[in-house]
Design a protein around this nucleic acid. Structure first.
Length: 611
RNA sequence: GCCGGCGUAGCUCAGUGGUCAGAGCGGCUGUUUUGUAAACAGCGGGUCGCGGGUUCGAAUCCUGCCGCCGGCUCCA
């Protein structure tokens, strides 16, 4: 069962942000009609990329240009600076030079050339090897165009704005490394990111939004709210869950467990390590070794492996007995903690860690049961996301790239599995996008994708159809005909992982978790010491109404204002303020996290409010 | 892993070659007993990420490592 991250082609732009808690990113206005790719803003950003390239060449004449497209919220240009280091200070110099070139208001001219002319042009210009390679890739039926502004000419499809003077409201944002053609075997280029807008106000707003997004970053909130921490001594990517974060985990697990019991899942528990031979048999060592922690070797005869997935263990449970078609479907569920040696540069707070807990389950089904069971899992996954209040997700069908060697099993088996997923999705009228090459190594999958606060795309839940592992493990059940048959395996995790899910929930809610998830649901604030006793009786009264309520009493010797501020920043759904008046009238003064002071109420009225 | 940036008190940050390294918040102690987003005073708290180097002198400059951040690549 895998979780992963994906930068979806065409949406790979950085700097997307939540405008408000509820407005979906995809509807940020620049993406509305006309389509972004045809909009003037798109051309403006494309031209901004050219302006940047022009300015770079004026400052670094030996730089070699590669590609520089507009992206969701801006643009970039990948440039080969040779041995020269290009950092933030260089970026500032380039931005200054851009303003200079913009103010010169250079007209932008388009011209169309033949292939030979184009080649000659590139050679006479700067002998950019990358541009020659790009030229070779232009299909013969496409026209070849160059755009020129002042001393700068670039091979480019366009379109562009008419003059550099139109590019007024821009800012360069960051420097990053990027491999030529996205292949790590190729040379690493320097990618310059920037953004541009039609108006100063839009640019300003964008920059403000970027700052705002940081405030809802789960790493910031995770610290402020006491959800989790990392320790250098423990190791990178190995999270430590604090008491409040653990409550959220437990609540989520409890919720899902209950739903799974209703749907016929059986909980199982398996160890964290297993013998190397098991992982050889499963194909993990063949296809997934890079993602695994170093093996534990006691001596030549015995090597153990820290599990990167739970599936082989669940398969062994299946195999512990003879199975009949009457037993199927069998659904084994486990909150299984797995370990993956992610590359150091890939770790990202709780969104990508090296040890994480999957809400994993494996369903063993007959071919006849596959469609229904697959749909049942999709239904559960959608149900779970609705309950969590996540709405801005989309679905991706990950299929095999037949060229790649990282997949196990025959073409036929893959064809069947991929067809099964696509057919089920179509029948359920799901809106999905197919992504070739994003399958699990053992089978195709349906993934639920979502963005984080700063616009990065992550995979949450996943449902995977697998004909390969049953074969590798020689799994069987006895059919109605008395003969052995092979079950099909569905791997699935509606959350994906608790770590990533809680990180995303934290960002979606900006830390203000809904009542049922909030680590502390109610905090009682006695105004003075003499009210503490009453506060305790209020807590008892609440617990009588609901034993599971998570209640704290803030009896610190602070002023009321201080206590309110402190607990407000902890985003606790309700504060119950109790002072002399409340003791006299047997009330609690309710303060709602969103609506503020609701005034004094008898306790049972408050209980009714939260029930 | 690769490119770039960053690393000063528990947290947020100031200090960029020259007195014993600073602030706010948090913590502790005392005073205050408080009615809807920060009471007042005092006190603690730092091998300036770690190691090596340059220098009369390094938090500050150079270098190796570790960690974090933004990308890229990989990824079930």
């Amino acid at each position: 069962m895998g979780i992963g991250r994906d930068d979806t082609p065409g949406l790979s732009g950085r700097m997307v942000y939540f405008q408000t808690q509820t407005v979906p990113i995809a509807e940020s206005q620049e993406r509305m009609d006309p389509p972004y790719e045809k909009s003037r803003l798109y051309a403006l950003r494309h031209s901004a990329a050219h302006l940047m390239a022009q300015s770079v060449l004026q400052l670094f004449p030996d730089a070699k240009l590669t590609i520089g497209p507009p992206i969701d919220n801006g643009f970039y240009y990948d440039i080969d600076f040779g041995d020269e280091t290009f950092g933030d200070s260089e970026l500032e110099r380039v931005e200054e030079k851009m303003r200079e070139n913009a103010s010169r208001d250079l007209p932008v001219a388009r011209e169309e050339l033949t292939r030979n002319e184009a080649k000659e042009r590139i050679l006479t210009l700067r002998q950019d090897p990358y541009k020659l390679e790009l030229l070779d890739d232009i299909p013969s039926e496409d026209e070849i165009t160059f755009y020129t502004q002042g001393d700068f000419t670039d091979l480019c499809r366009g379109p562009h704005v008419d003059s550099t003077g139109e590019i007024q409201h821009f800012k360069l944002l960051s420097v990053a490394g990027a491999y030529w053609r996205g292949d790590e075997k190729n040379k690493m280029l320097t990618r310059l990111y920037g953004t541009a807008f039609e108006t100063a106000e839009e640019l300003e707003q964008h920059l403000i939004n970027l700052k705002e997004a940081k405030k809802r970053d789960h790493r910031v909130l995770g610290r402020q709210l006491g959800l989790f921490t990392f320790s250098k001594s423990v190791g990178p990517g190995l999270p430590l869950w604090l008491p409040k974060g653990t409550i959220i985990r437990d609540v989520l697990c409890g919720f899902l467990k209950e739903e799974q019991v209703k749907r016929g899942y059986q909980p199982v528990v398996t160890p964290h390590i297993g013998k190397k031979e098991l992982w050889e048999k499963s194909g993990h060592i063949e296809t997934f070794k890079e993602g695994m922690f170093p093996f534990m070797e006691r001596d030549e005869s015995e090597t153990f492996v820290l599990k990167p997935m739970n599936c082989p263990f669940h398969i062994e449970i299946y195999k512990s007995e003879m199975r009949s078609y009457r037993d199927l479907p069998i659904r084994y569920a486990e909150f299984g903690t797995v370990y993956r040696y992610e590359q150091s540069g890939e770790l990202a707070g709780m969104l990508r860690v090296r040890g994480f807990t999957q809400d994993d389950a494996h369903l063993f089904v007959t071919p006849e049961q596959l469609p229904q069971e697959f749909k049942g899992v999709v239904e559960l996954t959608v149900f779970v996301l609705e309950k969590l209040g996540l709405k801005d997700y989309w679905m991706r069908v990950g299929t095999r790239d037949a060229e790649a060697d990282k997949f196990i099993g025959s073409d036929e088996v893959w064809r069947v599995a991929e067809e099964a997923i696509v057919k089920a999705c179509d029948e359920m009228k799901l809106d999905y996008r197919v992504d070739v090459g994003h399958a699990a190594f053992y089978g195709p999958k349906l993934d639920l994708m979502i963005r984080d606060a700063i616009g990065r795309v992550w995979q949450m839940g996943t449902i995977q159809v697998d004909y390969n592992l049953p074969e590798r493990f020689d799994m069987e059940y006895t059919g109605e005909d008395g003969k052995p048959h092979r079950p099909i395996l569905i791997h699935r995790a509606p959350f994906g992982s608790l770590e990533r899910m809680i990180a995303l929930l934290t960002e979606q809610y900006a830390g203000a978790f809904p009542f049922w998830l909030a680590p502390v649901q109610v905090v009682i604030l006695p105004i003075a010491d003499r009210h503490v006793e009453y506060a305790q009786s209020v807590r008892c009264g609440l617990l009588e109404a609901d034993q599971k309520l998570r209640i704290e009493i803030d009896d610190a010797r602070d002023t009321l204002g201080k206590k309110i501020r402190k607990n407000e920043m902890q985003k606790i759904p309700y504060m119950l303020i109790v002072g002399d008046k409340d003791v006299a009238n047997q009330t609690v003064s309710v303060r709602d996290r969103d609506d503020g002071d609701l005034g004094p109420k008898p306790l049972d009225e408050f209980v009714a409010l939260i029930s």
